[in-house]
């Protein structure tokens, strides 16, 4: 009989599906999201200060036009307009976690350097993105204030200083000229270079959810 056949198919399906669903119900869930860090892991990183990158290192990379350096200004757009580092892009802290910036912050090809006037906002930005498991993000040590002191207007070392100090001063002096600091004070307003974010490298293209629906 046809109806008997239909019924036995149902029983057969139930015998297969229910145990399979039972296993799935208690199987571990797998995700490919970046691994979020626990508070303890974060504390350890904060304590070891791995998030900082020195202004000299950044200046060196800017001058050498390191293609993998991505400066990210986390201050407000108004402040960014007034002054910003060469090649920097503006992602205000308030918009840090919006989806449109995720592909810039969650990547494995560039060295992202957050900066603000001091280090408070940049450090907050670092902490927020690090918590989500994003890597390759750093904080400019001392922020723009320290940048101005060290790179733009370096203090001449005394004549008794060790050679490394003198070398550092010479580098900073050179850097300040290239980067438009130092004696030419009135130049500082003109250095606001608006840059586009670096294009994502092909293999790391941001994968987007498929669009569907009727």
């Amino acid at each position: 009989m046809k109806n008997v056949k239909i019924k036995s198919t149902r029983v057969l399906l139930a015998v297969i599906y229910i145990p399979v669903a039972f296993v799935l119900a208690f199987a571990p869930v797998k995700t490919n999201k970046p691994n979020a860090l626990s508070s303890e892991e974060l504390l350890e990183e904060v304590n070891s200060s791995v998030q900082f990158i020195s202004p000299d290192d950044v200046a060196d990379r800017i001058i050498k036009q390191d293609p993998f350096l991505q400066l990210i200004d986390v201050r407000t757009p108004e402040e960014f307009e007034k002054f910003s580092l060469p090649g920097a892009i503006n992602i205000p802290l308030a918009q840090l976690l919006s989806d449109e910036y995720a592909y810039i912050l969650n990547q494995s090809d560039y060295i992202n350097v957050y900066y603000s006037n001091g280090t408070v906002f940049a450090s907050q930005a670092w902490l927020l993105t690090r918590m989500k498991g994003y890597e390759n993000n750093y904080v400019l040590m001392g922020g723009l204030n320290y940048w101005a002191e060290t790179i733009m207007n370096p203090e001449a070392p005394s004549s008794t200083s060790p050679n490394e100090e003198v070398a550092k001063y010479n580098f900073r002096k050179g850097a300040s000229q290239v980067l438009g600091g130092g004696a030419t004070e009135n130049d500082s307003a003109a250095t606001s270079i608006l840059a586009a974010p670096k294009p994502p490298i092909k293999k790391n293209t941001q994968r987007k959810r498929v669009q569907g629906g009727c």
Partner: peptide
């Protein structure tokens, strides 16, 4: 058999998700 038809339809739907990332419509 409706259950056979259902399993086949489910497999077609699964193929749509696997290939195109979306369901039927």
């Amino acid at each position: 058999n409706p259950y056979v038809g259902g399993v086949l339809l489910g497999l077609v739907l699964l193929a749509a998700f696997y290939i195109s990332g979306r369901g039927l419509g």
